[in-house]
Design a protein around this nucleic acid. Structure first.
Lengths: 220, 220
DNA sequence: CGCTTCGTTCTTGTATACAGAGGGCAACGT
DNA sequence: ACGTTGCCCTCTGTATACAAGAACGAAGCG
């Protein structure tokens, strides 16, 4: 752990943004956040710098901080970049992954499969297992830049909204795609892995577009 | 300008790293840097957070900061990622660039061409114009994530070492490739632009490998 | 002679105090 | 009535003081 108070502040502010409690455009005042987290302004500033680097917050010319408006962004572009990078990671992982990592991937995906198997899918468990699965693939790619790059590209609110609009068959298909990716990795076939991941992200994109169409983003 | 002292510290420390004065693995002590920059520890900490986000510095488990060792990284991977993203940016720019941006690209590349035309190429001007050229392409792509993503991927020391090992014909070829990219953008042909940029980065990769072979990285 | 353990010291994390800059509001002039 | 200008106030940037944690060294024990 890097520190104590700074991490508390980071987690707290990040939570505020991801939970939607601080919607895009919200003004973030250091003192306010400091008192909310029960720490001083110094660790809050630290946290804001990190969040700024991750594009969770943006600063007005006069260095005033606001919650970034990711909804205004070009989602097609965001998914295209993410698909490209994650597909690359999958291809790279196919050439480097070891048996223990493969076993963990299978275990995580089994958990994911159980979460979506019942009559009422457990979305929270799905999201957690999904995140873990993708993180494991990234780790297996063994490229120190990849985690940092993807951190800029994967917006958890988008993943969440996408998953919440998945029907059970879509959730199961997601699990099946993960399973196929595991097979591709086990076969050490980079192009197979790349193809599966590309389709996986692309499907998520269309699911998100569908979700946005049904429930327009923050209708005004 | 975001601030005064924090930017001074950021530029100073970044300069230390990029100039090679602080080689990879160098321990970075806050107080030391503070006195060196003539500022307090607070803006130095700010600068270090930013540099950490950009992977210029890494922290030991106990949060001690060191200059990141980019030489130890998989350069093939670094160039592959950069090529993929910049090619994507070029393709996207082809669909969005306006006449004034095109004109500026031509002007910058003309400056670059002049810098490498003489009997003794002006590497400094080449590097500056090259950087500006690529930045303009990124800006023309109009994707808010791209600059941040590429900041993680483009290591100036690598660009510098690559350019310094370019012969004059290679420098001129670089200018020619830029010119072809401008043509592709003017034609609004994304795949042409993508192809040119892919080859451009790929050639830079091989030039860097060649440079590393001739002058092994910091021979011990 | 080597390993472990304790203490000192150096460095970073945190809090607070102060100053400067920018924005908002009001009042005045046109 | 609207624009402009000036003042005030809030917020951020910076500096400094203090505390806590970790690494290094020394000394004692096996």
């Amino acid at each position: 752990m890097a520190s104590r108070a700074a991490d508390i502040a980071y987690a707290e502010i990040r939570g505020l943004i991801l939970s939607g409690e601080a919607p895009p455009g919200t003004r973030l005042k250091e003192e306010e956040l400091a008192s909310r987290c029960g720490v001083s302004r110094t660790p809050v500033r630290d946290a804001l710098r990190r969040l700024e680097g991750e594009l969770f917050v943006v600063r007005n010319g006069a260095s005033r901080m606001f919650v970034a408006d990711w909804q205004a962004e070009d989602l097609d572009e965001l998914f295209a970049l993410r698909g490209m990078i994650e597909a690359h990671a999958a291809a790279r992982a196919a050439l480097r992954i070891g048996p223990e990592a493969l076993a963990e991937l299978e275990a995580v995906n089994a958990r994911l499969g159980e979460a979506v198997a019942g009559p009422t899918p457990d979305i929270a468990t799905f999201l957690e297992a999904n995140r873990r699965f993708h993180d494991l693939v990234i780790a297996a790619a063994e490229s120190p830049r990849l985690p940092a790059v993807l951190a800029l590209l994967v917006e958890q609110p988008i993943v969440r909204r996408t998953a919440q609009h998945y029907g059970r068959e879509a959730l199961e298909r997601s699990a099946a795609e993960h399973a196929e990716l595991v097979r591709a990795l086990a076969a050490r076939d980079p192009e197979w892995a790349r193809g599966v991941m590309t389709g996986h992200i692309r499907r998520a994109y269309h699911a998100f577009v569908e979700a946005s169409r049904v429930a327009p983003a923050r209708a005004r």
